[in-house]
Design a binder for these strands. Structure first.
Lengths: 167, 167
DNA sequence: ATAAACTTTCAATAATTATTGAAAGTTTAA
DNA sequence: TTAAACTTTCAATAATTATTGAAAGTTTAT
């Protein structure tokens, strides 16, 4: 497998995987492209490489910046803007986990809590609803907490290792 | 909030959350409905409750059975078939984690491994592609392993607790 | 102040994904 | 064996989501 084939394969795989972490194909592909690029890329560069329109590129870059995993960069002497992505996979994982928790998991936890807090009228079906949504609430909360703890532990481990190197 | 409202809220929330664990709305809603039902439901029951077509119900029930979280049940004296879902949230989490790993994460790990194994031609861009996909490969593999370990640990914890009660 | 270089916005359109419903298929009871 | 009861399949259609491209907006250099 040559460079170009490997590159395309990576971008496509990462792109279709986007749905797994809740972002669309173009967004994931742009991130993938930046992730393996050795230098910041301009909008033109991205459009050319991925064969997507200017509007699409602009909108998805914006979203990636909102997520905090892509940053604008100005290159001296150049008028247009260049973009880079977070290159450290651990930090990338940390940001993604945090954002997904905030955007999707927290709201669900809140609703499950609301639903499981309805007043118990004594009927079997109400009891079952309360019991099961409470169980789901607890599970979701625990899973969310564990993911965050886990990702932050990784972070601490990395930080510590870096600290040792710097000292 | 009354029973019906809470029920609808739960089914809708769980339904729209479906995308988070990679299944479609109807599929998630059917699972949610079964999850809070006090007795097995027939296809008619599900169609009526969720206002969806027979075909849709049939196809999504099939998928849920493929996932292993819904099972057919026959009720004596009844011609039609009834369905139930796994009621233990821990076991549900275990099955979902396992299936997602098998269906989505493992194939990605394989491709990342392939891509990161291309021969190093010494150019900077090839070195970067290898380095970054390798990092992503390792992260994905570690995360996948941790999720599985975690879910199984929960399982063990539960099993132990139950054992204590039984003894 | 102007115009070139560049980016954003958003209505229109395309692509994808989900849903329907009726015909075909299967099972069961008599 | 037949026909009623029930389930599955799948082509057609609807709903949703992503993408385009051109007009409007912004920034920068002179």
């Amino acid at each position: 497998m040559e460079y170009q084939e490997a590159k395309d394969k990576f971008i496509n795989t990462w792109g279709s995987l986007g749905s797994l972490w809740g972002i669309n194909k173009a967004m994931a592909q742009i991130q993938a492209l930046l992730f393996i690029s050795t230098k910041p890329l301009s909008m033109e560069d991205i459009m050319d490489e991925l064969q997507i329109s200017r509007g699409n590129t602009s909108m998805n870059l914006r979203q990636l910046m909102d997520w905090g995993i892509v940053t604008k960069e100005s290159v001296p002497g150049e008028r247009k803007e260049f973009f880079t992505t977070e290159k450290d996979v651990q930090e990338l994982a940390r940001v993604i986990a945090k954002e997904r928790s905030r955007r999707e998991i927290q709201p669900v936890i809140k609703i499950l809590n609301d639903v499981s807090s309805i007043k118990d009228d004594g009927t079997e079906k109400t009891k079952e609803l309360i019991k099961q949504t409470k169980a789901l609430h607890d599970l979701t909360e625990t899973a969310d907490a564990m993911i965050n703890k886990l990702v932050n532990q990784q972070q601490n481990w990395i930080t510590k290792s870096l600290m040792k190197l710097i000292k």
